[in-house]
Amino acid sequence: MRGSVHRRSSGANGWLLSLPALLLLLVAASGPLVIVAIYSFLEPGDYSGVRWIFSGDAWFRILFERDIFDQTVSLADANLSIFWRSVKLSLATTLVTFALGLPTAWFIATRPARSRAIWLFLITIPFWTNLLIRTFAIMEVIRNQGLLNTALIKIGLITDPIQILYTDTAVLIGMAYVYLPLMVLPLFAAIDRFDFNLIEAGYDLYASRMQILRRVILPIIRPGIVAGCILVFVPSLGAYVTPRVLGGGKNMMIGNFIELQFGQGQNWPLGAALSMVLLIVVLGALLIYTRVASKEDPHG
């Protein structure tokens, strides 16, 4: 009883004390967001910027286009294909990083404590390098006269170089490489907590290796899987540098499309509306995450 009173009073004090910080956060975080939201409901300016006239046109143009001559409305195929490519590539990146990340995280988590630190450090090394440089490094590997093609030709697997650079595959390779650590780290944390006796328990109770993976390991490390997938999917969806460098100009993703609106396209409201859509998708993904995470541990 006394404890709860004490907690309540300290809670009130704490709230007051953190008020300045909260205000700062509110302004810093939501201020720009509010501006973006407002811009998405204005008309584009003549060359750039906005005109302060309310318009839902930007939101309309995300999905639809109006014929200039007869004013008929049709789906904006070009936009849709960019959205579809973004989602597809982000999902593929998530899948690829999961497929590579699970065995990697498992390997690290089962090393002795001392070498584990070294492996974790190696996994995070790319983080200490500039993203642009890493992306150009990938380019060096996959271009027609690059490492991969030269090697494949040398060992006689192919005679002519495979065109990987400036394709969706190149973007996928680049994003998987860049975001792999974001998958490995949460998976590692989950596997590190995993009680390996449970594998023996499953094996003892007539489960095959596959059944142990599906029925025991995966459900228990699920919070780590979901966290890794979100951490990879969210930045993949908004990726800008990687699709720009490895996809060339034509294989745009949402990030590039948004940039285009603020640059050459000179349509700030459309760019703002697209940014809002991206944000909503990301928030949706996070919502799913908290749902799944809380379902995992209903009492904690």
Binding site: D195, L198, E200, A201, D204, L205, A207, S208, Q211, R215
Partner: peptide, 30 residues
């Protein structure tokens, strides 16, 4: 998993994501 022998582990090693009934039924289910 092919021996009709079962173990009671010292640490119990119960499956934390399964209910008591699901834990107990695990062997027969497999």
């Amino acid at each position: 998993n092919e021996r009709p022998i079962n173990t009671v582990f010292q640490s119990y090693a119960l499956f934390p994501h399964l209910t008591v009934a699901q834990n107990v039924g695990f062997g027969l289910q497999m």
